[in-house]
């Protein structure tokens, strides 16, 4: 019986994916683009060579970190739209510590370690701001988060063109890159860093256990599902909400730190690369289940990287992957909604 429904679920999800592909294909046909070639290019562009695979993994790292954090806030019933800003603040704090110590005598390993820690704290503080606005100011976390995202972007630009500008004149290409010894160690010949990969995988595993196996995780879920009942059961509700924000901020901040130490090696204007919003999509797509987050995030990262080829090879815009990514979420949510309605009836 149970098995049956599980298979049915899987089939339904598969149908949603097919529908999303179909619609994307139709859009391409309408735009006179060759769909099959486009898909082939995306696949080749993401898994065609070791180099491409390493790029996919590199993009997977911040996305997975962000999703891990968002699973916590979603479980607590919070829409942490401010996650973008939390990534940005993580990146800013990391850059700040790197700049602070780059000319000091401290060993580079320690500087990197401290800078990542700072990134986590930066993200956590930014998330706590959204949380505080909600719990003490009564500002819905969606609005608070959006506002804080704007502030974070503005802050980045101000730093890049102001206090942290490159020698001479500030540039959209960001701050002066850090020397190689301040990069997270990479696999020779590839951009990928084992350290970053390890951190991302450890994070999602930790979040899985936090939500599935601990008292704290269960209390977060209780607060998310029924705030008033949780209060009456004796769970300190606002403290748990703040904790959820804080934890999510740590993971988002870590994602920002990875963007600086493992990807760009400097602060750039769009340092978050939209991983916050993409993380929201992934979290929704996996229905807030940690166990599915890793493969789905990988798939999304592959779409991201694969579509970079499109403009070069097919003269198509790479935003096609965005269309597919968004379409997937819409269809999966829609199918899920229909299934729920059907279930309630039977």
């Amino acid at each position: 019986m149970l098995k049956n429904t599980r298979w049915a679920n899987l089939l339904i999800q598969l149908a949603a994916v097919l529908m999303a592909l179909l619609l994307t294909t139709l859009i391409m046909l309408a735009a006179d683009a060759p769909p099959l070639e486009a898909y082939a290019n995306i696949i080749k562009g993401s898994f065609g060579s070791l180099d491409r695979i390493s790029k996919v993994l590199l993009s997977w790292i911040p996305l997975l970190l962000t999703t891990a954090g968002l699973l916590i806030t979603f479980s607590t019933g919070l829409w942490n739209i401010g996650v973008e800003g939390q990534i940005v603040l993580g990146a800013i704090a990391t850059t700040w510590v790197l700049r602070l110590f780059q000319d000091s005598a401290i060993a580079p390993g320690w500087i990197i370690f401290l800078s990542i820690l700072a990134g986590m704290i930066g993200g956590a503080i930014w998330a706590s701001l959204a949380g505080a606005l909600k719990t003490f100011g009564g500002v819905n976390e969606i609005f608070g988060g959006l506002g804080l995202n704007f502030v974070a972007t503005a802050l980045t630009l101000w730093l890049i063109f102001g206090p942290w500008k490159r020698p001479g004149v500030g540039s959209m290409s960001g701050t002066q890159p850090f020397p190689e010894e301040l990069w997270l160690p990479q696999i020779p010949d590839y951009d990928l860093s084992y350290w970053a990969l390890g951190l991302a995988i450890a994070s999602i595993v930790a979040v899985y256990f936090l939500l599935q196996g601990t008292y704290f995780g269960l209390r977060l879920k209780a607060v998310g599902k029924n705030f008033r009942a949780a209060h009456l059961l004796g769970i300190p509700t606002w403290q748990h909400m703040m904790a959820a924000f804080f934890l999510c901020g740590i993971f988002a901040g870590a994602a920002g730190a990875m963007q600086v130490t493992a990807v760009y090696h400097r602060l750039i204007p769009s340092i978050s690369s939209g991983y916050g919003y993409l993380g929201l999509l992934v979290a929704m797509l996996v229905n807030y289940q940690a166990i599915w987050a890793a493969p789905v995030a990988l798939f999304y990262a592959a779409l991201n990287i694969g579509s970079i080829q499109l403009p070069i090879v097919l003269k198509m815009d790479s935003s096609l992957s965005g269309v597919l990514q968004g379409m997937l979420v819409l269809f999966v949510l829609m199918v899920e909604g229909i299934r729920q309605r059907y279930l309630r009836r039977t």
Binding site: T214, F216, R219, K221, A222, K225, N226, G234
Partner: peptide, 30 residues
């Protein structure tokens, strides 16, 4: 409370999970 599903219980969680939540002073893992 009088309103069972609004204030008393948490729809979506099982009976076991309710009993776990109602107990206080626990460790880390369930």
């Amino acid at each position: 409370p009088a309103s069972r599903l609004e204030e008393g219980l948490i729809p979506g969680l099982s009976l076991t999970e309710h009993f776990i939540l109602a107990e206080k002073g626990q460790g880390m893992f369930i």
